[in-house]
Nucleic acid binder design. Structure first.
Lengths: 147, 147
DNA sequence: ACAAGAATGTAGCCAAGGCTTTAAAAATAC
DNA sequence: GTATTTTTAAAGCCTTGGCTACATTCTTGT
């Protein structure tokens, strides 16, 4: 065992890595709700709290709180007893999230993950895929398609 | 806009997908701490609260609480003012996490992600990679190596 | 028109995972 | 052997994101 304090071969940026992973996690829920609201509006013309909750697998009060956070962040608007709508910024976010989700699923499938599993895992994975990695995924998929 | 309640083309398992992503998240921090403790023991012969905290990028009280959770889950043991050690179960977990981390980084690099970015993203991604997906990654890497 | 049921909102609880501040114990230095 | 410094612990606060229970408001059926 090396108890020598000199022998420190941990990457110096390791704390930042974890901090960044935590930051990504903080965005994750907002992203999920924004995308869900966007989906619901597209499919049913409006996003009701009840529908959001049931699709997210949470109770209505939880959905209400999440929507409150979205509103606080300027991503959504709503009036009491009415549906929830996205601001331009929120709609933008939802669109980016949706595109990223597709890319992640496609990449997983491309490397041999069963589609059903790819869908499952992408739900958690997508929030931690950086811009750089996303670009790399797109390039890989393009190359594979052109093969 | 389709307000027809019949038109419900959401996958019925969508709530489960989100619930599973949330469950994975709950394990994530335990996994990170277990792996970190394992790293420190290997590198320095013991894992001290101070070192754990500084590498995780948190304050010591936060690290202490995390260790308390690990102990509660039967993954670690420690006595006051002594280092932290992993139980067999904890060591097992750490080893699995470490292996998975390597596989994820390797796969990212294999599809064209810059190594530094791969390290970064893997920190968040790894916790959401299912067994099935991990196996697929391994097969892909084997195939690429044998090419 | 109004009663019943469904949807939404509000209040309050809990655990997790951060933080700061303060206290005690251990290790070290003199 | 004592004093100082470092490490650990303890207490208490905050936010997030779940929950249940209860109150209110809409909507709908008759």
């Amino acid at each position: 065992m090396t108890k020598d304090p000199e022998d420190n071969d941990a990457p110096p940026n390791q704390p930042e890595r974890f901090q960044q992973a935590r930051a990504a996690q903080a965005m994750a829920i907002l992203e999920d709700y924004a995308e869900m609201i966007s989906d619901l509006i597209e499919e049913m013309g409006e996003a009701r709290i009840t529908d959001i909750a049931s699709r997210m697998g949470v109770t209505h009060p939880t959905a209400t709180k999440a929507v409150a956070r979205l509103k606080r962040e300027g991503l959504a608007v709503s009036r009491p007893y009415r549906g929830v709508f996205l601001t331009d910024e929120g709609a933008d976010l939802a669109e980016r999230v949706r595109a990223r989700h597709r890319t992640v699923v496609d990449l997983l499938v491309a490397v041999g993950v069963p589609p059903e599993t790819a869908e499952m895992d992408a739900e958690g994975l997508e929030h931690h895929v950086s811009e750089t990695t996303l670009k790399a995924f797109e390039r890989y998929l393009d190359a594979a398609a052109a093969k």
